[in-house]
């Protein structure tokens, strides 16, 4: 059985998504809704990582439940840069690129959850299935958010 490998892959993609959301929030701090909601959604992914790490033990994998949440020096520089960019029109294009990246990443995470869910049903592991049922809907909500922010933001950015 290769569920452990799939969980390892899911763990990696959720960790990456957490970082993507946090970084987008810092970079676009002057866009307050992006800043706050991205951080709220990063908390969901962080919570997912804890759940994945916990259940992965049953499948022979030792995964880190922690996603680093303190701002490193590089991240602080990015945040400051983001605030300075706040008055500059090119911040908009950067925002669209970051949102697109989050959308792609979240879609990938969703596919990973899909796989785990299918495996769990196949071997009737209720615990694993319960984790999927708790987490996968939130991943879908994350990608819908990214998509809706792209829709809401791109018109003004591209035609001004």
């Amino acid at each position: 059985m290769k569920i452990g490998l799939a969980l390892r892959e899911l763990h990696r993609s959720e960790t990456d998504l957490t970082h993507d959301l946090m970084q987008a929030g810092e970079r676009h701090k002057a866009d307050h809704e992006i800043f706050y909601v991205a951080n709220d959604l990063a908390a969901w992914s962080r919570k997912h990582v804890v759940e994945i790490a916990r259940i992965a033990g049953n499948y022979g994998e030792h995964l880190d439940p922690d996603v680093a949440s303190e701002l490193t020096l590089m991240e602080k520089i990015r945040e400051k840069g983001g605030q300075m960019l706040g008055r500059d029109a090119s911040a908009g294009l950067l925002l669209l690129r970051d949102l697109r990246h989050i959308l792609m990443q979240a879609t990938g995470v969703s596919a990973d959850w899909e796989m785990i869910g299918q495996a769990a049903q196949g071997i009737r592991h209720q615990d694993l299935l319960a984790v999927t049922e708790r987490c996968h809907p939130e991943t879908l909500r994350q990608s819908r958010w990214a998509n809706s922010m792209i829709k809401e933001s791109s018109t003004q950015i591209l035609i001004s």
Partner: peptide, 19 residues
């Protein structure tokens, strides 16, 4: 009608960044 009408804080944000 391609997106919901722009809300006040977003209008203010567009003023801030110049569009």
């Amino acid at each position: 009608h391609y997106s919901p009408p722009t809300h006040a804080m977003k209008i203010i944000r567009y003023v801030e960044e110049g569009s």
